[in-house]
Design a protein around this nucleic acid. Structure first.
Lengths: 188, 188
DNA sequence: CTCTTTTCTTAAACTACATTAATTTTTTTG
DNA sequence: CAAAAAAATTAATGTAGTTTAAGAAAAGAG
């Protein structure tokens, strides 16, 4: 049984047959480090579940500066859900930070699963909720805490991730410059 | 037909009978200005649709400073959805900023509607999505823009609201001090 | 309508974080 | 493994936003 099947089983009750039917709608894909899974303003036709590796989701602001919005790693979903569901062009860039293996699902297959497998409806409902809740928490943190506090929290919350990705990427996620992050780390 | 019925009709196709059944599960409630609809760490048993007035959702950070997370006004939903759905204690405070009239729905009635009225399932799916998307946008803004840019955006996005609530509340939403907001306004 | 409380404004001193630029360390690539 | 490119460090200087404090204006209460 693959990691996706396990992930689903942890969230909803579902028979093994249904699970097989469900997993059949996914296709394995690979991207190499630094490759883009999605470019901003392209059409979004898939979302992804990570089997191996990690990605960053980012944008450029009006001054051309890159800002990391999220990191995603093993057993997480990623993609531009908003564009996938609304059929609007992608609002984000998504880039592999390590060699990456994912399970991809097309919108057509997503819709089929929603119709045919009620457990998938329940599962995606939980996914959306959790995404919503983690966004709420992120907003809170950006409002309430200093860069240093946000960095400590990041370390606590994503302990492995901080070993796997560069500080430049972490700084961009925290909303500070790499130079300032370097200074925070020194004075620890 | 009340504002909630209209709001639902704008989002999903639904018969008038179903709509009546649906609206019957809501109870009208009133709160006066400054009254709290929800206190942090209390149990959450209802969520609300606003007929009249506006509210702020806020927390205290570790230093005791208040931070506004959202404002909600006519035709919007509010409540601590996370706690409502997960049955955990409230993570937020919610306070009326004006005299307030809402339609409240209990968790029991929410669950009944989800079972009995498929259109309600579709409607809440859209609600959750939109909440998710607006959170994404807020995270982006806090990362990418200066206080002044965020203030301009706030004015453009909530033109009426800025007339209805105090600058102290707006500053708390923007993540700056009232003094600094005052300075931004002067130099306009 | 007056008294009290809260909000708003202004300004000076201060701090968290940005910018620039030079140097070192690490990673990537042929 | 050597050369090139990217990332990380350090330090000096600059700036967006905070803090404190005091007075003016507006809102709320009796």
């Amino acid at each position: 049984m693959n990691a996706l099947a396990k992930h689903i089983k942890n969230i909803v009750v579902i028979s093994d047959e249904q699970l097989v039917k469900l997993c059949d709608r996914f296709v394995e894909k690979r991207f190499s480090k630094k490759e883009h899974v999605l470019h901003i303003s392209n059409t979004v036709n898939e979302v992804y579940f990570i089997l191996n590796g990690c990605v960053r989701t980012y944008i450029h602001d009006l001054n051309g500066v890159e800002h990391n919005i999220t990191f995603s790693m093993e057993d997480w979903w990623f993609g531009d859900l908003q564009s996938y569901l609304k059929r609007t062009p992608a609002a984000f860039n998504i880039q592999a930070l390590e060699d990456l293996t994912v399970l991809a699902i097309s919108r057509e297959n997503w819709d089929v699963l929603l119709k045919e497998i009620p457990e998938f409806v329940a599962y995606t409902r939980v996914l959306f909720r959790n995404t919503m809740f983690s966004h709420e928490n992120r907003i809170l943190q950006n409002l309430s805490y200093t860069a240093e506090e946000r960095y400590r929290h990041f370390l606590g919350h994503y302990p492995n991730l901080s070993q796997r990705i560069s500080q430049k990427q972490i700084a961009s996620y925290l909303g500070i410059t790499p130079e300032f992050l370097s200074m925070l780390r020194r004075k620890k």
